[in-house]
Design a protein around this nucleic acid. Sequence first.
DNA 1: ATCCCTATTGCATCTGACGCATCGATATGC
DNA 2: GCATATCGATGCGTCAGATGCAATAGGGAT
Lengths: 268, 268
Amino acid sequence: MADASPSSLRRALALLDALASDEAVAQGGWGVNRLAAQQGRDQSQVSRTLRVFADAGFVERDAESMAYRVGWRVFALAARAGDQRLLAAGAPIIRRLVERDLGERIHLTVLQGAEVLTILTETPPHAVQTVAWAGRLVPAHNTSSGRALLMDLERDELERRFTGVVFGVGGPNAPRDLDELYQRILVARRAGYAIVDEEFEPGLVAAAAPVRDFRGGVVAALNVSAPTFRLGERLPFAARAIKAAAEELSKQLGYDGLRPRSLAGRSA
Amino acid sequence: MADASPSSLRRALALLDALASDEAVAQGGWGVNRLAAQQGRDQSQVSRTLRVFADAGFVERDAESMAYRVGWRVFALAARAGDQRLLAAGAPIIRRLVERDLGERIHLTVLQGAEVLTILTETPPHAVQTVAWAGRLVPAHNTSSGRALLMDLERDELERRFTGVVFGVGGPNAPRDLDELYQRILVARRAGYAIVDEEFEPGLVAAAAPVRDFRGGVVAALNVSAPTFRLGERLPFAARAIKAAAEELSKQLGYDGLRPRSLAGRSA
DNA sequence: ATCCCTATTGCATCTGACGCATCGATATGC
DNA sequence: GCATATCGATGCGTCAGATGCAATAGGGAT
């Protein structure tokens, strides 16, 4: 991180991120001033930068409110960014988990550095749709998905990936250091699934299992999470259901079930 | 378009575009040299620019081939801004359908369990009754929107979703059981749109088509509904118009029109 | 009318993007 | 084995262009 790579490009990209923030989305986009203030930059430059983005279709502007929001080109690019096979094969499996097996919110996630990115979510009908999880990043060290995604890593690889990451945040049982995390990963590895009890957030339990592709490496994770009072007792059952579903998805990605571990494909 | 707005940002964004080209995607991404040559730029600068993109997650690099491809952050941006865009892009399309094409009430809806939630409505000027449809829940099994939203589901998924739901209520032609519903969904799937004739309410016909996002899944539906005496004869025409509009909206959400479900692998 | 908010534009300053050259790494030929 | 080629990263001097200030212009409000 000490690479000190300034660049106007970095500042420009930060604008896109800001426009995709919950707050900005909820307000139907942000104007130049709002953005400039939030980014601590001069309005003039934000205005000029956004114009370039707008010309390229990366942002677009509401005609009357003058507010900018994420543009069509980002959506076009996104279709090329995700692993389409994972999405296509994952969708029905997730739906089945929600509807038949667990009745709780299910996520399909991938690892992104020391964080977990949700790429697909299915919510049970009764749930009050609170947060849109897709596209969201959560820590890897105190979530079940994270633990499933890290399942193949050895101690030293883990260390490298988590240098500079602050532990101990989240729920009361979150691992406080790398060793604790590694121990819990070992437990998950033996079971074939990860269980998390009030590590991410108080009152929340979760279970996750790794999804592997044809190379045998972990490429994604399936997980369920719910309040303790609803899922707590069924958690072992839920974990097994998640694991079975993850194995089915893995099979659809060409995993033959014989390679427990090889070097994972994705990089930092 | 010869607006002489140079900027390095414009050049940087062109790199993303290039990485999203069919050719680049088909080859599993492009290396620095390939990109530089294709863009007519110096390798050094492409290398540096891509590093910034990579740090921000806008591109990611294959660990062994060194090839860059569109990264997770683009996906995340699209996922988080998706709802916003659905509303923003949907509004003018709906308005146009009402004013130019059909002159009847148009709805934009999403699935909520076994029901359909209306999130946007446009009413023709001549309409008398102004029921506030937005925010309203109606059954999914006997509405055109429902049928469009369920279009991808297989028989077993449908079964799970509708356990406990009472059929046969509504209009005279409402599906009386799950099999009937599934048969009609199959018909809709083949046509690409759903038509409903006095299923929800006597004297009411409707047509709907699914809206898909960059992930390929159905995220919403467009529909028109009106009294039989006004729309009955034009219903096939209306259905085609709705379908075309839904496809346009899908395109604006990054749907490339190529993957209704599953299959979209890329080769080595 | 003034006041306040907004976004855009003119312009001088100097950051940082640029191209050239070099260097390390991996690959292919002889 | 050495030579040659390819590809990506980096050091450096130069100048395009990003930056910030200030001025401008368009709305709404009161």
